[in-house]
Simulated assay, not measured.
Amino acid sequence: MKTVDLMRVVDAVEELLDLATDDGVLLRLPNGKVFLLRSVAEDDDEHDDFADEIARTRQNSMLMELLEVRSQEQARIPAEEARRRLGLDT
Protein backbone atom coordinates (compact mmCIF):
# COMPACT_ATOMS: atom_id res chain seq x y z
CA MET A 1 0.00 0.00 0.00
CA LYS A 2 1.26 3.45 -0.86
CA THR A 3 0.88 6.59 1.20
CA VAL A 4 0.27 9.96 -0.45
CA ASP A 5 0.59 13.08 1.68
CA LEU A 6 -1.77 15.77 0.39
CA MET A 7 -0.37 19.25 0.88
CA ARG A 8 -3.38 20.83 -0.80
CA VAL A 9 -6.85 19.31 -0.96
CA VAL A 10 -9.33 20.44 -3.60
CA ASP A 11 -13.01 20.65 -2.67
CA ALA A 12 -14.06 17.48 -4.51
CA VAL A 13 -11.35 15.44 -2.80
CA GLU A 14 -12.20 16.92 0.58
CA GLU A 15 -15.85 15.96 0.07
CA LEU A 16 -14.83 12.38 -0.79
CA LEU A 17 -12.62 12.22 2.29
CA ASP A 18 -15.51 13.43 4.46
CA LEU A 19 -17.73 10.67 3.04
CA ALA A 20 -15.00 8.10 3.58
CA THR A 21 -14.68 9.09 7.23
CA ASP A 22 -18.30 8.15 7.95
CA ASP A 23 -18.95 5.00 5.92
CA GLY A 24 -16.20 4.45 3.38
CA VAL A 25 -16.63 5.04 -0.32
CA LEU A 26 -16.36 2.69 -3.28
CA LEU A 27 -15.14 4.62 -6.30
CA ARG A 28 -16.22 2.92 -9.53
CA LEU A 29 -14.54 4.11 -12.73
CA PRO A 30 -16.09 3.87 -16.21
CA ASN A 31 -13.53 1.18 -17.12
CA GLY A 32 -14.86 -1.06 -14.33
CA LYS A 33 -12.07 -0.58 -11.81
CA VAL A 34 -13.27 -0.18 -8.23
CA PHE A 35 -11.37 1.52 -5.42
CA LEU A 36 -12.13 1.64 -1.72
CA LEU A 37 -11.60 4.95 0.05
CA ARG A 38 -11.92 4.71 3.81
CA SER A 39 -10.64 6.31 6.95
CA VAL A 40 -8.27 4.07 8.90
CA ALA A 41 -8.76 6.02 12.13
CA GLU A 42 -12.17 4.52 12.83
CA ASP A 43 -12.50 1.09 14.42
CA ASP A 44 -15.52 -0.63 12.87
CA ASP A 45 -17.12 -4.06 13.28
CA GLU A 46 -16.35 -7.28 11.37
CA HIS A 47 -18.99 -6.62 8.71
CA ASP A 48 -17.06 -3.62 7.47
CA ASP A 49 -13.81 -5.61 7.54
CA PHE A 50 -15.49 -8.16 5.27
CA ALA A 51 -16.66 -5.42 2.89
CA ASP A 52 -13.11 -4.06 2.77
CA GLU A 53 -11.74 -7.50 2.00
CA ILE A 54 -14.27 -7.96 -0.81
CA ALA A 55 -13.29 -4.60 -2.31
CA ARG A 56 -9.59 -5.50 -2.16
CA THR A 57 -10.25 -8.94 -3.64
CA ARG A 58 -12.12 -7.41 -6.58
CA GLN A 59 -9.02 -5.34 -7.33
CA ASN A 60 -6.86 -8.48 -7.65
CA SER A 61 -6.91 -8.73 -11.45
CA MET A 62 -5.07 -12.07 -11.55
CA LEU A 63 -7.58 -13.67 -9.18
CA MET A 64 -10.54 -12.18 -11.07
CA GLU A 65 -9.13 -13.52 -14.35
CA LEU A 66 -8.64 -16.99 -12.83
CA LEU A 67 -12.18 -17.03 -11.47
CA GLU A 68 -13.56 -15.95 -14.86
CA VAL A 69 -11.71 -18.76 -16.63
CA ARG A 70 -12.77 -21.30 -13.99
CA SER A 71 -16.40 -20.22 -14.24
CA GLN A 72 -16.38 -21.02 -17.97
CA GLU A 73 -15.10 -24.60 -17.53
CA GLN A 74 -17.65 -27.22 -18.52
CA ALA A 75 -15.82 -30.44 -17.59
CA ARG A 76 -16.64 -31.99 -14.24
CA ILE A 77 -14.93 -34.87 -12.49
CA PRO A 78 -17.06 -37.19 -10.36
CA ALA A 79 -15.93 -37.57 -6.73
CA GLU A 80 -15.04 -41.24 -7.28
CA GLU A 81 -12.74 -40.32 -10.18
CA ALA A 82 -11.06 -37.56 -8.14
CA ARG A 83 -10.44 -40.00 -5.29
CA ARG A 84 -8.96 -42.54 -7.74
CA ARG A 85 -6.67 -39.90 -9.31
CA LEU A 86 -5.49 -38.78 -5.90
CA GLY A 87 -4.90 -42.35 -4.75
CA LEU A 88 -7.56 -42.12 -2.06
CA ASP A 89 -9.42 -45.30 -3.05
CA THR A 90 -10.04 -47.56 -0.09
Rank of each mutant, 00 (worst) to 15 (best):
K2W: 05
K2T: 00
T3P: 03
T3I: 11
V4C: 00
D5F: 00
L6A: 05
L6Q: 00
M7C: 07
V9S: 02
V10R: 05
L16M: 10
L16S: 07
A20R: 09
D22K: 11
D23F: 11
D23N: 15
G24N: 01
G24L: 02
V25Y: 05
N31K: 10
K33Y: 12
V34T: 15
L36T: 00
R38V: 05
E42T: 15
D43H: 10
D44V: 08
D44K: 04
D44C: 05
D45Q: 01
E46I: 11
H47V: 13
D48S: 12
F50M: 09
I54N: 02
I54V: 15
A55D: 09
A55L: 02
R56L: 14
R56M: 10
T57C: 06
R58T: 15
R58S: 15
Q59P: 01
N60Y: 12
S61F: 10
L63V: 06
L63N: 04
E65G: 06
L66W: 02
L67H: 03
E68P: 02
R70C: 06
S71D: 03
S71R: 00
A75F: 07
I77S: 01
P78Y: 03
A79K: 13
A79W: 10
E81W: 00
A82R: 12
R83T: 05
D89Y: 02
T90S: 02
